[in-house]
Design a protein around this nucleic acid. Structure first.
Lengths: 346, 346
DNA sequence: GTTAGCACTCCCGTGGATTGAGTGCTAATC
DNA sequence: GATTAGCACTCAATCCACGGGAGTGCTAAC
């Protein structure tokens, strides 16, 4: 009952977890000896399993069922047992092919990534789009919609487009608006939006007087367009895959999970917290600390552009997930998104 | 056994359907006499029910259960028994209040409509966005993304924004692009996109030679931006409401339904066919001729702008739907969308 | 330390038996 | 002739007992 696991226990734990991932059923001692023939009898395996349960890596649904891994079991499996094979060039090529279609807008690209993640993993794909404020500003455009209502269109360097309606106190005609956005484009293109905000603030207060009416108004409009909380877009694709998982044949549970997905905001918040980490992150069950998706694991990776991470994508599935297959897919997809979003720059 | 229904049969049919809508259970003869006390004994009601079954308005799941309405029964109910009360001014005001938030973009407005439809009806709300080609052209903008890749942004009179990436053979700098879209905006604003297409074609062939290089290129770019199939956006909101309906406690069925929603394209196709009809349309069960949503009914209405219908919205729920409540909500929401999308014009 | 053997536990499927809601029919009643 | 009370019948759903099977834990032998 030493707390460290010896080679044999690890082998058995691994075998149990892998069998359970494949079958979704509790795994018994005989099944292990049959399928993994470690040169041990069922009785021996039973003793080891009993120890593993004692240590919290396994649990028994009831006396005469086999064992299923606990979250601690999965955690150990992922940290110590799992070896991830990098994708072969062929596999990478196969994934890349999904994105080959030309003329895909950035948002379409991200949604497509969600679909691909779902299809390849057989779970649900999630992609959080970049926060606009972290992007590099490329272009702004004002279009007068009606008395006092102006449509603002931003374009970021990575090709993401966002639009917004602002209400300006005074009515501005389209010609003035054009002059205004021309000025803004000349002045601020190439800066990050955060920087734009800062400069805007400085310039407006510092030398306010020096600017003529038009420029002052341009800046005020820009500022109005930039302010306000910004909800990040989240693409969730392939939820129906979840319906295929036996663990969600419980309707009540399904319903909760679905509502969580429909809500999105909590998931966005969570992914936002993941965003600053490098590489693939794995959250098993309650490790997400997010009750509605109980029984699920989350594999995420962030994608980046121009140095910083800008968004997060991943796969959400039951804790009993085929981690070894999903992890490299998520990893590579994140790399790919970084490349593809970058490629709009020359 | 005459084929026409007398007053008494109609009353009983109505009572059965309304009870069934409320309870989702087969309705028995005693329940009718108890809850609707028509001054008849259960035995009499049984005789009538038997006739109604004979005529195809009711069906019995098995010998000793009550009766449930058939699609024919619902159809008769809707066509002949149901009287719809128009919404009271208070109810209308309550609905309008949902849209009072300012600065809502057209697409946000439509999605919000889906949510509101879902919340008020307790079923799933669907909103098909206007087809861009039928909109009135207000503004176009070209933004150079990279070597040969141009982002095109369209704005329609109703405030809808669409963007697209086109690949131009030659590399154009941003300054040229601006001149081009300025020209296009001056020339074509206010026309419907269909008309723009036509004029573009005519002008390009007729007096091709007369145009200078820039104008010719502008038109070619515009044309490139307009071509290609256009997938209509469809907002489906509140699917989780379906999970609450007892008829979908069958997992297999749920799954089919969900996949149908995830697919969207068939639903778009179907709604597209509804679009040219006036007023509220109701499709009961297999009347949609769309197998995946079997057991569901669809209540739709089209919203319009500048005379023509531009999109369709509605509610999808089980055939056992609270028609009398949902119909006026769908009707009024469609009217409201017409108004709200119009209000961008002065 | 490992393993064979065995008693024990518990889930699950099967097959009556029972219950209850509801029907259809018949004969009596209005 | 329409309506209704009464009654036999049907069928799904529920409960319960039972047996089989999978799996465990313990003990004693290797």
């Amino acid at each position: 009952m030493s707390t460290a696991l010896n080679e044999r226990s690890r082998k058995i734990l691994e075998a149990i977890i892998e069998d359970h991932i494949a079958s979704a059923e509790p795994v018994g001692s005989r099944a292990i000896t049959r399928r993994h023939g470690l040169g041990l009898s069922p009785a021996t395996v039973r003793n080891v399993m009993s120890d593993l349960e004692e240590m919290g890596y396994l649990a028994a649904p009831h006396t005469s069922a086999g064992r299923i891994p606990t979250e601690k079991g999965y955690r150990f499996y992922i940290d110590s047992l799992l070896r991830i094979r990098a994708l072969s060039p062929q596999q990478k090529e196969r994934i890349r092919r999904y994105y080959r279609r030309r003329g895909l807008r950035a948002d379409e690209l991200l949604r497509e990534a969600g679909r691909v993640l779902s299809n390849l993993s057989h779970y649900t794909g999630i992609v959080m789009a970049p926060q606009f404020t972290t992007s590099v500003f490329r272009h702004i455009e004002f279009v007068r919609l009606s008395q006092g209502r102006i449509l603002v269109i931003f374009v970021a360097e990575n090709g993401l487009v966002q639009n917004k309606i602002i209400e300006s106190g005074e009515d501005l005609n389209q010609h003035d608006l054009e002059q205004m956005h021309n000025y803004l484009n000349r002045t601020y293109a190439g800066l990050s939006l955060a920087e734009v905000k800062k400069r805007l603030l400085r310039e407006m207060s510092q030398d306010k007087a020096q600017y003529d009416r038009l420029l002052g108004r341009s800046m005020r409009l820009f500022q109005a367009a930039l302010k306000g909380e910004e909800s990040r877009e989240l693409f969730i694709e392939g939820f129906s895959r979840m319906l295929e998982q036996p663990e969600f044949s419980d309707l009540e549970r399904m319903k909760r999970l679905f509502k969580a997905f429909e809500q999105k905001s909590l998931l966005v918040e969570f992914l936002d917290k993941c965003q600053n980490s490098q590489g693939v992150q794995i959250f098993i069950g309650s490790e997400t600390d997010y009750r509605d998706i109980e029984g699920c694991s989350l594999i995420t990776a962030s994608y980046s552009s121009a140095g910083g991470t800008i968004g997060t994508l991943g796969v959400i599935g039951p804790t009993r997930m085929a981690y070894s297959q999903v992890i490299p897919i998520v990893d590579y997809t994140a790399q790919l998104m970084s490349q593809l979003l970058e490629s709009d720059l020359e």
